[in-house]
Design a protein around this nucleic acid. Structure first.
Lengths: 228, 228
DNA sequence: CGCCTATTTGATCTGATTCAAACAATGTGG
DNA sequence: CCACATTGTTTGAATCAGATCAAATAGGCG
């Protein structure tokens, strides 16, 4: 989730290195011990884990404003890899600079901590989503989450959001086969809940979709101003 | 995961209220806006979410030393409920006192942040566990995690740990029916990996169990001293 | 002892996987 | 600007892991 404009400003004053990274590249890898962290300026990325049998499990999607490896500031080695889904513009900042900033500006440290707590809340919801909902419901839930998160950062155009995530990636995120993702999306289309063509998702019936996905925004801990 | 002894000391100096809570009680509930947080001094608890159809999803187990609703310091309303599994001794501390402590002792604030990051790492692993492993593998993984976490806080007696979690609770945590948990545990017993009787779990073949569960301690981010 | 909760077993059913192949879209170089 | 390669989506059929339903057995405890 995006940080507040004030925090963003302080972050913008940091010594950063910007990089353009093309789609489908790892930014950092599981096991790395990076000395810097990154912020997504533009584009979609995801965090994932590999199991020994070679299957990839996506554990979160990151949007502009997110700090996908914030953890590395305090946990030396990464338990996830982070990969771009679209071409991305990424800002890198050294841990050193971040630690210095946190020391000088405890408010920022609090904001980072809050951000981590929010992240954890989303993970909790994903556990519930993957563990107990049917395929259709799981996907509906994920689509609702992506729609709200994109709306919060101003990337929703009415009921439309950019949606560059492939069906096979949706499968890796929800624990479903891509075949079954396909069939479940068709059900959501047939039900008149969504239309998904090219790389754009339209939410045709948000209220209905939240019902199907058992979705409630409370876990996103939105501030009243963020979501009306 | 437990905080370091130094942090524990600072926490012990806080104005706390101790409560004894019997098994199977909610400590706080989803939607609550508490003004205090709690530490588990003794006993097992879990965090859970209810879905609209009434099913309970356990998203984590908490052991002595854990701070299951630390999130409430920065996220006003709870997205989970926390319930005791065994009779517990719980310490309550006001948010006010915690915030004051963090302000005065930035090291402690960092420790809390790190704790939250660790929590998030465990959630990530749970997503992967529930999303892509078979029933037997899922349970093996969870048992490994509980064993290591209990060993770290000194609650393992050689290969034995207290294990008061019922099969139906294991099902609620892993997204399996209690019937299937039962059959899967039998497989682990037959394979000579564990023995589970009464409320005690013996790990008869830890290495084998980690294989079955595709378990690797890296996500627990243990410090070298904690786990040999 | 008797009640309540937890574990175990059996039989049946189903949602999702797997395997295989066709089809559509997108991008690339000649 | 078209031919071709690549990646993503869609469809069909067979199979299976785990759910569900139902009932028996075993522990714990007041």
């Amino acid at each position: 989730m995006a940080l507040s404009p004030g925090d963003q400003q302080a972050i913008n004053d940091l010594p950063i290195r910007i990089a353009e990274i093309r789609a489908g590249q790892d930014i950092v890898r599981q096991g790395d011990r990076p000395s810097r962290m990154c912020f997504i300026i533009d584009g979609f990325t995801c965090s994932y884990k590999m199991s020994t049998d070679g299957r990839r499990q996506i554990v979160s999607f990151h949007l502009p404003g997110d700090a996908p490896d914030l953890q590395s500031v305090h946990l030396p080695s990464l338990d996830i890899s982070i990969a771009t889904i679209t071409p991305c513009r990424i800002a890198f900042v050294t841990h050193e600079a971040i630690r210095y900033l946190c020391e000088k500006q405890p408010k920022i440290a609090d904001a980072f901590w809050r951000y981590t707590l929010l992240d954890a809340a989303i993970y909790r919801e994903w556990i519930a989503n993957v563990a107990q909902r049917s395929a259709v419901s799981r996907l509906a839930h994920l689509l609702c989450e992506m729609f709200v998160r994109l709306a919060v950062i101003g990337d929703a155009n009415r009921d439309k959001i950019p949606f560059p995530i492939t069906q096979s990636e949706l499968g890796e995120a929800t624990g479903l086969s891509s075949v079954h993702v396909n069939r479940s999306l068709q059900e959501l289309r047939k039900g008149g809940y969504i239309s998904l063509t090219g790389r754009t998702l339209s939410i045709l019936n948000f209220h209905g979709l939240t019902d199907v996905g058992d979705f409630n925004t409370e876990y996103l801990h939105l501030k009243p101003i963020e979501w009306v």
